[in-house]
Amino acid sequence: MSERVAVRKTYKLFIGGKFPRSESGRSYLVQSANVSLASRKDARDAVVAARAAVKGWAGATAYNRGQILYRVAEMLEGRREQFVALGLPADEVDAAIDRWVWYAGWSDKLSQVYGGANPVAGPYFNLSAPEPTGVVAAVAPEEPALLGLVSVIAPAIVSGNTVVVAASPVAPLAAVTLAEVLATSDLPGGVVNILTGRLAETVPTLAAHMDVNAIDLTGVADAELAADLEIRAAENLKRVLRPAPADHDWHADPGITRMTTLLETKTVWHPKGV
């Protein structure tokens, strides 16, 4: 009997819940694998998919979103060995799963902590409620490949945003494998879209895109590129999360700023008494 030939995986993009190749047909060799090299048009398609998913995801109850995010953590746990086999340190994988669970818990607590009743001098109830800003473009840090990625995706989607994330160009396999987890976790298609390839190609398109509401520049190490992206983002007043400092400790408590930056506050006045 002949020796079995192993089936090799094609690493593709993750757009709208599907795994398409790059529209350009290009790929690049990284981590001993061929990975899709996303183009401007892939970035545009991802924004279209993310926009289409906003209504359903933002409209879902916080409880439902939380359940789906917990489910993602369950699936991550089940694939722990697969991530370790990609060369990720086991403690980073564990930290990424814990980080995901931590953010999942925030889904039905965020509006209580960050919103609430405001004291006003008049016969009114005055209530502020945080709402998702819409489509978020995000740049994952180069390292740590999985923990960093989870730390930009989870805070964006927990409140009902949808996200287009540019994965680490040097370690994209963790991102594509995470996409497989997301695709099997009841997460609606388009809520998370992952682009692999060169940042300089896709991110300026996302930063200038008029249908993107916020941009998270966490993974942009090049200060000049970061400044250029902020200028592009100013055109339609995107909310901006600045790049993380080089010595950022990803294992530390992340705080809630990453979530709250990607929110819009809605305040309503309601007459009382009578």
Binding site: R44, V47, T205, A208, H209, M210, D211, V212, R232, E235, N236
Partner: peptide
């Protein structure tokens, strides 16, 4: 403009 437009506009 060279920039992708959005339906909001």
């Amino acid at each position: 403009t060279g920039v992708y437009a959005g339906p909001d506009y």
